[in-house]
């Protein structure tokens, strides 16, 4: 890897982690396609590097999200039981699957995420009734600095949430994307957590999920320090920036941009399998 590629991978990581950290996506959902499409890096090496970067992004970004009160640690632990289990299955499957299959699956996941985020933009959960049952003690609140409002919420539909979270784990294990692209819409659309709480909680969870993925790729010599080192430098810068921006910016305004970027990357990856390149 020459100096220009080193810098290029670093800049790609800044982009991936800034946007990833803002929406609790971990950044892998952006980083894997960027590394494979623009730097010609083998998808498996890209997924391995991405897993390490997702952990880094989570570690850096979560410390800010937890301080801000966006992260629901109890909810994260609950969902993580099925997510981490799914990630082991997914990572073992990924090592036996052809690279083009990984590209198609990632492409479909990206398009799904884009559509989900488009829906999410219009839906913001209402505050739960004080007397609403909370057997798992998941009720939480935070001050949204962008609007200066106290947001109270109570996650619901825990059982289906756990099941879908397991599926997110399988995909994250296969793709090294951390699973946030599915976790955020899941928590927001199904479990009725506000976008920022979903993003903060997901940001913490994706780090734990990616640990399992990173370990599997490490054991199979698929973590390349030539890619990981510049990416980690970029991730550090982007994660700090992204988590600070989450506090200040109204997330809904950014969702449209993310939808366009994610949809573009998703379509590009699927078309790449058929040797068709988008600009």
């Amino acid at each position: 890897m020459d100096t220009s590629q080193f810098i290029g991978v670093g800049l790609a990581a800044v982009f991936a982690s800034t946007f990833g950290s803002m929406l609790g996506l971990g950044g892998g959902v952006f980083l894997v396609p960027l590394l494979t499409l623009f730097f010609g890096i083998d998808p498996k090496v890209a997924v391995g590097a991405s897993a390490v970067c997702v952990v880094t992004n989570s570690v850096v970004g979560s410390s800010v999200h937890i301080r801000s009160g966006f992260t629901n640690l109890k909810l994260s632990m609950l969902l993580q039981v099925t997510t981490a289990t799914g990630a082991i299955v997914g990572a073992l499957v990924a090592l036996r699957v052809d690279a083009s299959v990984i590209n198609v699956v990632l492409g479909v996941v990206l398009i799904y995420s884009a559509l989900s985020m488009l829906r999410q933009r219009r839906l913001e959960p209402q505050a739960p009734a004080k007397e609403a049952p909370d057997p798992l003690h998941l009720r939480a609140s935070f001050v949204d600095p962008a609007t200066n409002r106290v947001i109270e919420y109570l996650p619901v539909r825990i059982e289906p949430g756990l099941a879908i979270s397991g599926g997110a784990g399988v995909l994250s294990g296969m793709l090294g994307i951390g699973g946030g692209a599915i976790q955020v819409p899941l928590m927001n659309l199904l479990m009725r957590a506000p976008v920022k709480a979903a993003a903060g909680t997901s940001s913490f969870m994706v780090g734990m999920t990616a640990v399992a993925t990173a370990a599997v790729f490490y054991a199979h010599d698929q973590i390349d320090p030539r890619v990981v080192v510049p990416a980690m430098i970029g991730i550090f810068l982007g994660a700090k920036l992204g988590s600070q921006l989450t506090r200040r910016i109204q997330t809904q305004r950014l969702v449209l941009v993310f939808v366009m970027v994610i949809a573009y990357l998703g379509v590009s990856l699927i078309l790449k399998v058929f040797d068709v390149a988008l600009m």
Binding site: M77, V81, A84, M208, V211, A212, V216, Y218, A219
Partner: peptide, 15 residues
């Protein structure tokens, strides 16, 4: 339990 699953995943990968 989450911790155990994470450790198991690392253990399995290093086998």
């Amino acid at each position: 339990l989450v911790l155990l699953i994470l450790l198991a995943s690392i253990g399995l990968s290093l086998l």
